[in-house]
Write a protein that binds this DNA or RNA. Structure first.
Lengths: 151, 151
DNA sequence: CTGTATTAAATGTAGGAACATTAAATACAA
DNA sequence: TTGTATTTAATGTTCCTACATTTAATACAG
């Protein structure tokens, strides 16, 4: 369905660029909604999930809070408090960084890895639902256009 | 710059679909950040701006709060309280709907229209910055791929 | 009509996001 | 070294979001 129909837009967009911006944000919100629903039974927010995946990418190396912030999709959110929540759930460990006492090393626990593994299955199911809509080549083309939009 | 570089991803994405989802959300957050900065001097949040634009699309007809919710990019946000804020700034008017006393008619004021007109200029500048990055055809192709992703 | 279901908007709430500030450790120039 | 600037994480604050509930009006079956 076209974005105009989805948001019941009465007046046409002023340019294809305006249209793509609205479409992008609408589609992103739509996906975030799907993801949030998927995570709800596991008591994880989307941001907490992102942090866990970043930590898994580094495992078994630790990573600093500032590195987490740098890699997060939403740069503005507060990695320190997100790590708090994950520590409380015993999904990550926080230890003082030996080489710089200002910094804090964060590492994902076995419990965290196990939870992510469980979520991978659901994630793959969600991803598969896209396979019927776009070919792999089209998905790549879409990624490439997004990269160029941000250039 | 590729999304992998932007988020300093160490392990490759598990599929082009996974990649496009992350890319989409990253790009959307990036644009939302730009827009939020643009609106800040005008003391408008992105959501309030969206509501105002929806109301302009209907002007001079009024529109119900439920219709606003339907057309918003983020379906989950609370149109009722957003309208509160806009009423407080005298950018919109709220009146009881004559045909259904449960409903509330909302209409944009002259002050609201003037503010939007001012913002259009800035918006066009932002849109122009995309013209150097994608051709109009590519922007259309991007919109179309997004439409199909949501299908 | 009468009672039940549905719809519209507002509101209560817990938690999250955005942004500024603080506190401590480190870097580094004079 | 000494003092200033910078970096790192944590915290304070205000507002917003997501979701559930409430209140009121309307629809509609029986």
């Amino acid at each position: 369905m076209s974005i105009e129909t989805d948001i019941k837009q009465s007046t046409p967009f002023r340019s294809p660029y305006q249209r793509v911006i609205v479409n992008l944000m609408y589609t992103s919100n739509w996906i975030a909604g799907n993801q949030t629903q998927l995570l709800k039974p596991f008591k994880l927010t989307l941001q907490q999930y992102n942090v866990l995946r970043i930590l898994r990418g580094q495992h078994p190396s630790p990573i600093k809070v500032s590195d987490i912030t740098e890699r997060m999709l939403d740069k503005m959110s507060n990695a320190s408090r997100l790590v708090d929540k994950l520590v409380a759930k015993k999904l990550v460990l926080r230890t003082e960084c030996p080489s710089d006492r200002r910094a804090v090393d964060v590492i994902i626990t076995e419990k965290g890895l196990a939870l992510l593994k469980q979520l991978d299955t659901h994630q793959d199911t969600l991803n598969k639902s896209f396979e019927g809509k776009l070919t792999a080549e089209e998905a790549e083309a879409l990624s490439h256009l997004l990269d160029r939009l941000r250039a």
